[in-house]
């Protein structure tokens, strides 16, 4: 192996949410509270606390942790949806965030129109999408449904379209949040095959899934989060066995 190149550097990232006890989201309540002399109390909640790690190009990172440990928050910070309260994130290369496939789809738009809409959300140009249009249509296997408004699609069809658009360019960094659990078995296989192809080209992957088997199969490195803190970082088998120890689940899960 040659010299390793850094693909992603997460440096001391923390995120604080203010969970207010009673949510004040209108002027009326705010004025009433002010008049009554009540203070609006906030519960501080650290979704992530001092998380640091560095990914080299080609690393495939599995992120483990119980519900609410901060896995999805971490992915969203890396994708740029949340801004960290403190700390920095350095990304090198194009990121394909597949946090929720089809975020940015409009239900009233047809599949065809959504290709251009979602494609431009991901930062692709219209000319580029036009040139890749047939490829997207073929991979998504939607056929004539492409001219039907997306609100009539099944969730599997939506996911297929989303996946086909998001993977049209080979990204340097791929963020996957439970997306492989959608679609039928046949399409899932096709997705995994496409993903494997990307792995061979050395794409950097961040992967969140509750299926330990899938994580084991796809990843070579793992981190474990607990209450927003990074408590383990190492080869995937070690992290998985630690995770199993902590949660008390066995191999069959």
């Amino acid at each position: 192996m040659g010299k390793k190149k850094v693909a992603l550097k997460v440096d001391d990232v923390s995120i604080r949410f203010n969970l207010s006890k009673e949510k004040v989201d209108n002027l009326k309540e705010l004025i009433i509270k002010k008049l009554k002399g009540e203070k609006i109390r906030f519960n501080e909640f650290w979704a992530l606390k001092n998380v640091s790690f560095t990914l080299n190009k080609g690393d495939r990172l599995g992120i483990l942790g119980l519900n609410g440990a901060g896995k999805s928050t971490l992915l969203k910070v890396i994708a740029g949806v949340y801004k960290p309260t403190s700390g920095t994130i350095t990304r090198h290369g194009h990121i394909a965030p597949m946090i929720e496939l089809g975020a940015g789809f409009d239900p009233n738009y047809t599949g065809r129109e959504n290709i251009f809409l979602y494609g431009s959300v991901l930062g692709f140009s219209r000319e580029f999408l036009e040139s890749k249009y047939d490829e997207i249509l073929e991979f998504s296997e939607l056929g004539d449904f492409i001219d039907v408004p997306i609100k009539n699609y099944s969730s599997g069809m939506k996911a297929r379209l989303g996946f086909s658009i998001a993977t049209i360019v080979e990204p340097e960094i791929l963020i996957l949040d439970e997306v492989l659990s959608v679609g039928d078995a046949k399409f899932r296989k096709k997705c995994e095959a496409k993903m494997k192809g990307m792995f061979d080209h050395g794409v950097t992957v961040l992967f969140v899934s509750h299926s330990i088997k899938q994580v084991e199969r796809l990843c070579n490195r793992g981190i474990l989060l607990e209450h927003g803190q990074l408590i383990a970082d190492g080869p995937i088998d070690e992290v998985i066995s630690l995770y199993k120890e902590k949660t008390g689940v066995d191999d069959n899960d």
């Binding site: 409009d106 009233n108 738009y109 129109e113 251009f116 809409l117 431009s120 959300v121 930062g123 219209r126």
Partner: peptide, 20 residues
């Protein structure tokens, strides 16, 4: 510049859906 296509798409979407 990177997101100008998205701006175009969002504008088009607004006009199209308003009278669809």
């Amino acid at each position: 510049m990177r997101y100008r296509f998205l701006l175009m798409e969002l504008i088009k979407k607004g006009i199209k859906l308003k009278y669809r």
